[in-house]
Design a protein around this nucleic acid. Structure first.
Lengths: 207, 207
DNA sequence: CAACATTTTTTTACAGCGTAAACAATGGGA
DNA sequence: TCCCATTGTTTACGCTGTAAAAAAATGTTG
């Protein structure tokens, strides 16, 4: 007896509505401007109701970061079918940079969220898993670089991938956070410059 | 008539005490854990008294970022006297990475603070100037790269510097934010690996 | 129907935040 | 002593995340 619990569909629908409102807010003003009360008000529910669908604010943040991760991976994996490893690599690099420029909030959340070091073991584990997954998004690049350097030397492929990822991320990170002012270049100029850099990084490395 | 204003020394002393407390808090928990009330309580004054010495919280944040910038520049400029440009560059790169690993909070504040886009023109200008200065910290590297590539082609030197800075920052940023988990390497391993990367990046580029 | 059990939602409350405004203390010149 | 500019504190406002209590909604049973 008693009131029946919500169906899975109902729960998922409400979660989606909450996440939609959260995403809207997040894409506009970043994680800092994401408040439980604003989300609730946009959904049309009271603030505490959110806690029936998400454990807390960080659960929402994590969900958004996972979204960003999925989106970025999709846009990179789109090119896994290209046969020529060099071209595949270039396309993936461009996709990576393109994603970052078009989704700066997602990219910042993906790369700048600070690891959690609280007492709560579950929380730590959850955060660790998220960081593992973010870190692992470089795998298709790693595999492609492996094809380029010869699959035997996996250590070398790892090193080359590290360099490449650092260039890509460093560039994007500095550009998004407006730390490339000394160049006095537009975003388009920068992206074009980087496009020339990616193949050079690896053509150089091939010999 | 009226009470005499504090001497410059008195004002500076109090500013320093406030900044000391702020720095202590900041180095421990980053910018997010920096609260006016905690600073005040540590100095032994009331929260609002801080506002007699700093316009607001962001003025304190900016002061801390400027500290970090000065510190980082000092540690890089220490090697400007080295004659061999290649060695000078390597030392500067190591100093850059060393600073970041030993002062993660400073480094994050230096590179991840989000540009201000409010209505206040003075605030925007102040932030823009800070970002200009952070961006300009790459100049000694730029100049050294210029010596290596031949001073005529300043455009090429700029490009090479950009790549190098991106590698350095990208590496540091990913490492500090724990996004290099796929490597399963310790901080020391990572730094050693980077040390091998820096000269290679440029020896490659010399020919 | 009323009574009850159970789940969902809201209301209320607390501790924290940055900071504007009002107030109190200080100390030198008239 | 009174005045008044300067320094410092107290109070208050509107935010924040979320714990706890109260309320509402919705089903089953007598």
């Amino acid at each position: 007896m008693g009131r029946k619990p919500l169906t899975t569909e109902q729960r998922d629908a409400m979660r989606a509505r909450i996440l939609d409102a959260a995403r809207k807010q997040f894409l506009k003003g970043g994680l800092n401007d994401l408040s439980m009360r604003d989300i609730a008000s946009n959904v049309g529910i009271s603030a505490m109701t959110i806690y029936l669908y998400f454990r807390n604010r960080q659960a929402i943040v994590f969900a958004l970061i996972r979204e960003g991760l999925d989106k970025l991976r999709d846009e990179m994996y789109r090119f896994t079918e290209i046969e020529d490893p060099m071209e595949r690599l270039i396309r993936m690099g461009e996709a990576y940079v393109g994603f970052a420029f078009e989704n700066p909030q997602y990219y910042r959340a993906l790369t700048e969220t600070i690891p959690h070091n609280g007492r709560d073991r579950d929380r730590r584990a959850e955060h660790a898993k998220l960081l593992d997954d973010v870190s692992a998004m470089v795998k298709p690049i790693l595999q492609t670089v492996g094809e380029l350097t010869g699959s035997r030397k996996s250590r070398e492929a790892t090193n080359e991938t590290l360099v490449l990822w650092c260039v890509l991320h460093g560039f994007v990170s500095l550009a998004l956070n407006d730390r490339l002012r000394f160049l006095r270049a537009s975003d388009d100029d920068l992206r074009q410059q980087l496009r020339r850099m990616v193949p050079r990084m690896l053509t150089v490395r091939r010999d």
